[in-house]
Design a protein around this nucleic acid. Structure first.
Lengths: 215, 215
DNA sequence: CAGAATCTAATGGAAAACCAGTAGAAAAAA
DNA sequence: TTTTTTCTACTGGTTTTCCATTAGATTCTG
């Protein structure tokens, strides 16, 4: 498993041609690579992986592919080929996303703005069995800054429904009529929502819900 | 001005090392380049431009730099060096953003997922004096989907300031105290803002402002 | 089935937002 | 220097949101 024991095989799963070119250059220059495989879709890569489990050492996995969810794809890769090292690779510096990916068996995470040195180091460390991150990600993991620490509060079905209607600029009365319940009920939902989100008023509610992509 | 009259000088203003590597490779392979300059910050590039207006043919400008607003940077570039062709280059496929950039003198716009061929074609066409886009952007420009058509209402300085404070969950009274004016004044600003945005209440205000990236 | 979670509803009151209009002072643009 | 825009401020409202708390009914789950 040592990175110098034999030339390594790397897969790039990524749909940005420029990024692929850049990675190819850096990897072939600074690592003892035997082969660099590239795939532009999750589905295509999984097909490839099925018949190449034995030989593939590392995957650089863009977690925002057009055809697949990165986290699920990672899980699938590790299920098919537990020996392959998966490194997340994306623009999103989302703490929870990184942790989700790790929980699915990834060995690390690189931001796309990482330097060549960071990428090489990350791959090398991951091949040695370590968990490894690019510098910015290290900071985000270590020091969870305010806006990244907030866990997604668990909302009930009704609350999600009401939240969406609030976001549609409806008043509590309008919502209550549409849902055929008392306006008091909606007021209660509204307050519970704000409490769960830690918002001071609707403005905070909408902002946070937007951030968490709940709308 | 013909692209084949002489080797061209290209600047890449971009902070992702991998993307820079990829671009360098593609550009030097497929275009008659004399020189590829790279800058990682808007400020640094402007300093370079000041003493190299004459020679610089094209700028590939990442509009999401850490230190600068892409649209304003574009305007500044065209002011300093009207002869330099500016091409926007980013992940954002925002119709209004593209149009804003064009209105500031840009000659085109490329998405980062563009192929090598698209990039080369775009640069070539732009050098010939045309406006040019990568394929996905062409579609977005041509077929403005509902949510991308709304024009940015012109806000006054004070209105922007108040809008930001509303988005910070502050009440009119709090804002009025902070700005040392009457709460009535803030109420008026608030109403004018909603009117300009065509919003029914603050919720709409915040949603639209978020969409338009005014926060 | 029993306990937990969710949805429902209410009281009663305070604060904030929203509405329509008016209008003077200050600053910016023509 | 006019003209226009922006910022300011007010009257006198109505509507809506926000707060604290309680509690029955229903639905889900161990």
């Amino acid at each position: 498993m040592s990175p110098h024991s034999r030339p390594i095989v790397i897969a790039i799963v990524e749909d940005h041609p420029i990024v692929i070119e850049g990675l190819r250059k850096i990897l072939s220059r600074d690592l003892p690579v035997q082969e660099i495989v590239e795939h532009h879709t999750g589905a295509g890569f999984l097909r490839y992986l099925a018949s190449n489990k034995q030989t593939l050492d590392v995957v650089l996995l863009d977690i925002t592919l057009p055809d697949a969810n990165g986290v699920e794809l990672c899980a699938e890769i590790k299920r098919l080929s537990p020996g392959t090292v998966v490194l997340g690779f994306s623009n999103h510096s989302d703490r929870s996303l990184v942790l989700q990916l790790l929980s699915q068996g990834a060995s690390g995470y690189l931001l796309k703005n990482a330097t060549a040195a960071e990428i090489i180091q990350c791959i090398t460390e991951a091949l040695q069995g370590q968990i490894s991150f690019s510098d910015q990600i290290k900071q985000i993991i270590a020091k969870p800054s305010a806006n990244q620490l907030k866990p997604i509060p668990p909302l009930t079905k009704r609350e999600k429904q009401v939240l969406r209607m609030i976001a549609d600029e409806k008043t509590s009365t309008e919502i209550s009529e549409e849902l055929m319940v008392s306006p008091f009920t909606i007021e209660t939902h509204r307050r519970n929502l704000m409490q769960k989100f830690g918002a001071k008023n609707v403005v905070g509610l909408i902002k946070i819900a937007t951030e968490l992509r709940l709308l």
